[in-house]
Design a binder for these strands. Structure first.
Lengths: 240, 240
DNA sequence: CAGGATAACTTGTATAGACAAGAACAGGAG
DNA sequence: CTCCTGTTCTTGTCTATACAAGTTATCCTG
């Protein structure tokens, strides 16, 4: 993976902040100093800084020096954010992950599901239901609808492994944008069947629509999360 | 509010997309054409485009033309995202909003709450509890802790109106970064007392820490949302 | 010592130019 | 017709430079 200049700088600074080289509340070196260190233009450096600001690592304001506001994250790091796959999250936290396919069928999009999913009515789709286990506990019920024409040759075996691996590496499709929505819903009988809900009668539902590089929506996903292991983090900035 | 060049271009293009001037799935004008239209440099234009990409309005890729993927939003627009206040959301959707202060005390941060909230132990704080009503229905239980030294002179009356108005306009403090976390929690007796939970036994909890322009955390907020009226939207991008 | 103008920083915005990498298109060879 | 190969267009990255706007420090004056 060929790193761009600004991305390399971003990662380096990010790592140094995480390692405590620039402590929280301390003042960051000025842009002038940093361009000397990295031997780059100010624009390139600022691009790296902009990403650090966006991710909540540093804070800036006209005239004032840049200040470090990073805080070394949280208790359980199992969270979604970005289009990170279940496997990636599990691997990052060194958890034992397992995926079980409980349904794999082909069907057509009817009017009702079209309205809910954003997929064109009449389209041929794969309908995949999977349960995600972490350390042996059933945590997530994933419902995926894939446009058949975009993801040809999908099988139950691939679904048990990693569909995104297949899409990106085998089919060479680059996934670009994903629009997601988070809500809290009543647990259905179907949820209860597959997740150990305990005395919770709700779950966190993340529904998402994913578009390929041609701007075509080729997927609708609904991830139904056990409340105890769901966490979503976000950094927002308000300027002026 | 003095608009910058790139922000003006961003808003103009955003509006044109929302108004259907550039339909979904259509190809956007090339950067070369747009720089002619807006009579600006490519860098400035690209800054506007970057924001449109980030917000999920358009999609780009090296070599290919930019494509419009905007979709005219969703059913109930009551959602959080950005640091938009309750009042702002209500006003945007023309809802009748009301805020009732159910607790307004001053206290000190003890060790336990310090760990939970990120505020320094021993700090003097205002402890404010409020219930948010929309169209007469109790939807949100807001628990705010404000650092007294940063928000002096806060009163119950101000809390009933808008604390952020007071902070930004009266105190002239510019709020910069807010780090939030979304989880689903069991409803407590306190929740049940103030929100009409129906047969839900959970609620969506958004806890946030807000930092002022000096990098000092001056607030901890916990918004406990009735599940039925909670919705969070997000656009994520995966490159390469 | 206090107060205020001034200078020396800082970050924010904008321009013009260059090259690279990928995609689309044309035209020619088979 | 198909396949290959350049050419051209598009977006992605990077540089160098200029000015604006806000903050901080300095120094001069009363």
């Amino acid at each position: 993976m060929p790193l761009t200049r600004f991305d390399a700088i971003y990662r380096d600074l990010k790592k140094k902040i995480e390692d405590g080289e620039y402590p929280v509340q301390s003042l960051f070196p000025s842009e002038h100093e940093l361009t000397s260190v990295y031997d780059c233009s100010r624009a390139t450096l600022r691009r790296a800084l902009a990403r650090l600001i966006e991710r909540g690592y540093i804070q800036s304001g006209q005239g004032r020096r840049v200040r470090v506001i990073y805080q070394p994250a949280s208790q359980h790091e199992f969270m979604i954010g970005g289009i990170e796959s279940f496997k990636e999250v599990a691997a990052r936290n060194h958890f034992w992950a397992e995926t079980r396919v409980i349904r794999f069928t082909e069907s057509l999009v009817d009017e009702k599901t079209a309205a809910k999913t954003g997929l064109a009515p009449g389209s041929e789709i794969y309908d995949v239901h999977r349960v995600r286990y972490l350390e042996g506990k059933a945590l997530i019920l994933d419902i995926n609808l894939f446009l058949k024409e975009c993801v040809p040759g999908l099988t139950s075996g691939i679904a048990a492994h990693s569909i995104y691996d297949y899409i990106e590496n085998e089919l060479g499709m680059s996934i670009v944008t994903s629009r997601r929505r988070m809500t809290v819903e009543h647990a259905t009988a179907y949820d209860m069947d597959h997740l150990e809900m305990g005395d919770y009668n709700c779950l966190a539902v993340v529904s998402g629509r994913t578009y390929n590089s041609d701007g075509l929506q080729f997927e609708y996903t609904q991830s139904r999360h056990h409340p105890e292991y769901f966490c979503f983090e976000d950094t927002a900035t308000r300027r002026k």
